[in-house]
């Protein structure tokens, strides 16, 4: 009885049309990476060094300890790569633009270490909104950053100076 009914129902079903662009039907816009920067476009916001979340150090010695602008950028990229591959926090980075993160994190470090960059990213609160970051995640990130700085032979005291700028940002990054 039931099977007869289901068979009848199936006869009335239309076969799905072939060649339909379902993204278009549902209004899904495909994100396209900028051919020059390799980054996905973001909604506009006011760019300001104040978004970096702390005042930069003075003098040039600390930047030198990090290998200057290029060394700092490499450390930022390495930190992101280690974190993407870190099972403790990899989930947080899924669906985020890692190309952009590597650039903006490098800019933030470079700005804070007074190595001659402006920070063009968003402020810490906005950038981490909705990620559900916990203190344990920050510790994992710190460990990855320490690993990256260690690989670049940054002296430990200098490593801690960068961390001293980042640690207070926990107030804007951690969600309760």
């Amino acid at each position: 009885m039931i099977s007869t009914f289901l068979s009848a129902l199936m006869l009335f079903q239309q076969a799905p049309k072939q060649g339909v662009d379902w993204d278009k039907e549902f209004g899904v816009e495909e994100r396209v990476r900028d051919p020059e920067t390799g980054e996905f476009p973001v909604d506009p916001y006011d760019q300001d060094n104040a978004n970096a979340g702390a005042q930069p150090f003075e003098g040039e010695r600390l930047a030198e300890a990090f290998g200057g602008r290029e060394g700092i950028q490499r450390i930022a990229e390495r930190t992101v790569e280690l974190s993407e591959a870190d099972p403790r926090i990899a989930d947080i980075f899924v669906a985020h633009d890692m190309v952009r993160l590597k650039r903006t994190l490098g800019e933030q470090f470079c700005y804070l270490l007074n190595a001659g960059c402006d920070y063009s990213g968003r402020d810490m609160r906005t950038a981490h909104a909705g990620m559900g970051v916990k203190k344990a995640d920050l510790n994992a990130l710190v460990e990855n950053l320490q690993l990256a700085m260690g690989e670049a032979d940054v002296p430990f005291a200098a490593q801690n100076k960068l961390l001293s700028k980042l640690a207070p940002m926990s107030r804007d990054v951690i969600e309760r």
Partner: peptide, 8 residues
């Protein structure tokens, strides 16, 4: 308070 994080 927190030993590492938060207000320095």
């Amino acid at each position: 308070g927190d030993i590492v994080y938060g207000d320095p």
